[in-house]
Amino acid sequence: MPNEDEHLESVQDKLKARQEQNESGLSDFTKARNAIEYKAALQQIRSLSDPEAVKKAIELLKNKQEDVTVRSLVLQKALSSIGKNLEYIRDCLSILQDKTDRIEMRKGAFSVLKVFSFGSKLFVSLRPEYMAILRSLLDDPDTNLREMAAEELAKDKDEFVQRRLLDGLTKQEAPIISDAKAIQLLGYDIHAEYYPAVRRLLQSSESDDVTKLEAIHVLANDPESKQLLVNMMLDKKQDKELRMSSVAAVQSGHPRDFVQIAKALVLDESESTDMRTVCLNALTLVHPTEKAALHEDQQFLEKVSRLHTLTKSPELKRMSLRYLESAGRHRKQ
């Protein structure tokens, strides 16, 4: 096992080798004239920063006739330089919205633009342009691009995409993405006006379980969904994951009712260990307003203690112990 000095020396040697490789790649890139040479050179380069080389690389990027791997490598290797130049970022925006360009390039451009949304000061000034392009992508022929664009817009609480998503759910227009994904994205800015449509989908026999699962997650705060969610939680014929997800939704949206329902379910020996475990889990995390009363229930504590001793389920044993420890810590405070 090498000691620390040897390790440091080894790392420094590797970094020096990488730097030399980068310089060699840059030299090769400067001289390269065809796709094979560009690829070979770019693959050696870790990061393209020489201004003339970057300028040459951007011309390759913009050229739709150029080999797609070369163009993609430019995006990857010139990432930092692109992010510091307004025109180069604009070039990425152009690629993203160009329906005639290769889909890999458009997705690659989308990736780097998302990177810049975090860390490029220049990107801030282009944000309105970016959002306008994303709106135009909602009708793009590529499903992934539509979905990714819708997601970015939804996170921004864009009303245009919210309207399009809701219209898709209510079939007032052709949906741009699946119902499940639409519900999920509407959840970034949940409004009462979405609840009726989402509730209908949860109750519809035509909705698949993926859609119903998304509906459960966003309906926690809908007062009119409370009974629906409680029924789902208690219905032993329901899909296991839908039931288990309803537990979190009821706990979050209706904490006081949840405590009574969950306690009864935990102690119901005819109930599955999965449901009893998940309910105990949620009981350890009830809102502080409910905690005091819950932890004062000595009878329930003793029953959970007995459950811990007697159950053969490792998950239920572990969960009941955590519940007791949590209650004990709270009582000590």
């Binding site: 959840g187 949940i190 459960i216 288990m244 979190a248």
Partner: peptide, 11 residues
């Protein structure tokens, strides 16, 4: 415990 993770009322 993250089963119960909730953000703005969405679990």
């Amino acid at each position: 415990p993250l089963r119960n993770w909730t953000i703005f009322g969405v679990t």
